[in-house]
Amino acid sequence: MIKILLFAELAEKAGKGEIEMDANTKTIYEIKNSLLKVYPQLTGLQTAMPAINEEYAEEQDEAKSGDTVAFIPPVSGG
């Protein structure tokens, strides 16, 4: 099980901030594509920065069961 976190506009569009994905390992790229199949409205995934376990990651990086993957829209703190 991989835990997926969504924030800001992504969470609003999905109607939730947390999704569980039944998988042992998946690349960020694969996770994005699976999410888009279920939530085609999440176009913002393309401009979000992925993170695995609270560290920024790349498309080809793999998440495994137990990991937390977050999709981080462009930030606007400060």
């Binding site: 800001a8 506009e9 401009t47 829209p73 462009p74 930030v75 606007s76 703190g77 400060g78």
Partner: peptide
């Protein structure tokens, strides 16, 4: 902070609201 810290701001106006990204 404006580059790497995952914090988001949502502006509320009298005619709408928006999560701000690339300001």
């Amino acid at each position: 902070i404006k580059e790497i810290v995952p914090i988001w701001k949502k502006e509320h106006w009298d005619d709408g609201e928006k999560w701000m990204g690339d300001q």
